[in-house]
């Protein structure tokens, strides 16, 4: 079981390098940098942050935001990212996933899927959840893995920022559909929600952001809660 700490809009959280190191010391298993609004200038800043973080961090680092081409992926990997996540660019051209997997290996290709509930299913969105696609989120997840993605970063738009808990139905549906690790994101309000999405949602990993940035709970408390619930936790 792994758990990541997600960074959104890097400018809002102080020194991301120091914070990433602090989360590693607290027991986080992975760090995710994601800047959904990244302009070209902001991307340069992001890569600089990635470079400085990679030299100080000894857990995996996933980077996403503004990735358009395979060369963008190469730049992020060179800067020190272990994995690169992409959403809008993959929807625009799914061949990007295949090209990235061929060039860099499927283990570093993360398909980021933002899904919103619609009727009995879920629809995939791009551009930070603002633009609907014609894609069914479950079919899209399957397609991404068939085309080269080695991991799915699955965000529930309905739950993101709500602190009402992860969308367990969405998570479980995607986990049952694909044969790559699924990282659940969006909605964590506390330790119990993380336990729920790993145990009942069957996610391979859970991402948290706001609850640890804002001090609702600590990474250590989450891991203790997971261990108490009988989930496998690193370091025990």
């Amino acid at each position: 079981m792994v758990k990541g700490v997600r960074f959104r809009e890097l400018r809002d959280i102080g020194d991301p390098v120091a914070l990433a190191q602090a989360y590693e010391r607290a027991g986080a298993d992975e760090i995710v940098f994601l800047d959904i609004s990244a302009s070209i200038e902001e991307r340069r800043t992001l890569l600089d942050v990635v470079r400085r973080t990679a030299e100080a961090l000894f857990i995996p680092l996933t980077v996403g935001g503004g990735v358009r081409t395979a060369d963008d992926i190469a730049a992020a990997l060179r800067a020190g990212a272990d994995k690169v996540s992409m959403n809008s660019a993959a929807v625009a051209d799914v061949n990007l996933l295949t090209e990235a997997a061929d060039r860099f290996g499927a283990q570093c290709v993360v398909a980021s899927i933002d899904a919103r509930r619609e009727g009995d299913g879920w629809r995939a969105y791009t551009h930070g959840g603002s633009r609907a696609t014609p894609l069914d989120a479950l079919e899209w997840a399957e397609c991404c893995t068939a085309r080269g993605a080695g991991e799915i970063l699955l965000t529930s738009i309905d739950r993101d920022g709500s602190r009402e808990g992860y969308d367990l139905g969405l998570t479980r549906a995607v986990v049952e559909r694909v044969s790559v690790p699924v990282v659940a994101s969006g909605g964590a309000g506390g330790v119990a929600d993380v336990v729920d999405v790993l145990r009942d949602g069957k996610a391979d990993a859970a991402l948290v952001a706001g609850i640890v940035h804002d001090g609702v709970c600590t990474v250590a408390e989450i891991k203790t809660g997971m261990a108490n619930a009988g989930l496998r936790v690193r370091g025990t």
Binding site: R51, A54, E55, F58, L77, R78, A79, G80, A81, F104
Partner: peptide
């Protein structure tokens, strides 16, 4: 030539 050796060199 495949990239990302930052953490390793630091380690």
């Amino acid at each position: 030539g495949a990239g990302n050796l930052h953490s390793l060199v630091k380690a």
